[in-house]
Nucleic acid binder design. Sequence first.
DNA 1: ACTAATGATTATTA
DNA 2: TAATAATCATTAGT
Length: 476
Amino acid sequence: MSFSICVAQCTDSLAATMDDQARIMQSIGGVSLAGHSVQGGMALPPPHGHDGTDGDGRKQDIGDILHQIMTITDQSLDEAQAKKHGLNCHRMKPALFSVLCEIKEKTGLSIRGAQEEDPPDPQLMRLDNMLLAEGVAGPEKGGGSAAAAAAAAASGGAADNSIEHSDYRAKLTQIRQIYHTELEKYEQACNEFTTHVMNLLREQSRTRPISPKEIERMVGIIHRKFSSIQMQLKQSTCEAVMILRSRFLDARRKRRNFSKQATEILNEYFYSHLSNPYPSEEAKEELAKKCSITVSQVSNWFGNKRIRYKKNIGKFQEEANLYAAKTAVNAAHAAAAAVQNSQANSPTTPNSGFQMKDEEFQLDSAESKNTLLSNMFTGSSGSFSLPNSGDMFLSMQSLNGDSYQGAQVGANVQSQVDTLRHVISQTAGYNDALGGNPMYSQHNLNANGGWQDATTPSSVISPTEGPGSVHSDTSN
DNA sequence: ACTAATGATTATTA
DNA sequence: TAATAATCATTAGT
């Protein structure tokens, strides 16, 4: 028992100085023997047996033996081996052994309640889960930083974003590597230590009674000690990951403005779908591809744009006009191409896709304006009522704006557009000419309330109210 | 330096 | 769950 305590203490010191195994290994021999002698001292006479009643030579003999045991560690290894051999062959050895067995029996220090402790430590589980989630533990995913770098290189504009990402991953890999090497080291040390202790105990079992169960228990103690060290490692690894993560999150706040081209594309889509600026998932993907940004960036952009547009429509008038004109020109080209091809339902040019969309947009916006008008008259225009009252007529005019665009396109095209419209309306859930993607989300149908009320796609012709007009809203 | 613009994040909502 | 609204933090124009 005392021996096991000593070993446990040793493992404590081991936790402190993992690197100095040899020293610990050595010390364990010394301490254990010393501890043994303490226990022996309780039941047996002291080494030199100077109790006055000592008339018996046997006791002297035992005293000598114990003394030798005590001093065995002070001698060199060879000497000690020889002494040990001598002791083992001593005629008193079996007697001493049986005495020890008896003592052990009496003191009842056998393995009691070996407490098969295996309630998985909740904290350890938490740590494990977190490490697993963060990709530190568990299977290596992806090609690590190499794959990240490759992806960054491949995706052009998105590289900026990925560079930071790969940086993060590189650091994570570093942590991961350290974690694994340390874990391996611990494992190895644990095994070495266990075998060492087991050998030691087996060796000692020749001089004192040690049951296999005790050895097992000892191994259990050692393993528990090592797993507590492991937990420390896991804990500090978790901390490191958390720190890295927080830094990365901070870094992620850094932003870069999208390229002019990207904003152009996004704005084009936004203003040509002003009545329902909610791109479907597919549309988002396409926009993301075109702009070399991620889908979530597209979502962010539209979220921001919608809210900012709605907040201060006046401010965006100029922009709206600009893009409306642009799309009108596009539509004109597309329509012209459609006329030339006179193949309304098999659009092959990229522009024809736009043309269709524009057509749809115009329909939409006309409708939305109508609903808007009725809403306005019933007095349900919400926060925009005051500033928009002036825009009312402009909104009406913007209906003409459509026809204005049509006029721009050319009256002769109008009939063709009409046939197109027919084709479109006939083709239930028609697809985008570009990739067969449905460019309109279902929001088209059910988003009337929120957006269209607030939105007042104002006149393309008249840039009436300047940006600084009296919109009650005060932007930051 | 100050401010507007803008991309991203967070909390709330339907 | 996606959209909104508010807010943060950086960029960019003056």
